[in-house]
Amino acid sequence: MYYVVTFATLVTMALALIRALIGPTVYDRVLTVNMFGTKTVLLLSVIAFLAGRPDFLDLALAYALINFIGVLAVLEFFKSREVRRQQERDVEQENPPGETG
């Protein structure tokens, strides 16, 4: 029965990858990375039972932590980039041709 879960998880990972490839905005891709991470956590816990190695559960927990922090860090990066771009646009609007900074 663990094979059913493993199969479903792998198929969902593939679907998420397709969405990551076509997903128009960068935020779609971050969403799929997040989904992929959750699926990895599930897959790791299933493998722990499939292979009879409970220590994989610790890996799953550590992966969940890293995934969370990673997604937040990436989003913070994009947010600050967005803010910077907006400021540059505002500066350009205020004094169009003149001095370049």
Partner: peptide, 26 residues
Amino acid sequence: KLAAILLFLLITSPTSSYALAHAALL
């Protein structure tokens, strides 16, 4: 350990969803 993983996922997934939605909105 499984319960801890589940609890952790249930707390972090809405948090990162919110961060994602908010960043996309901004």
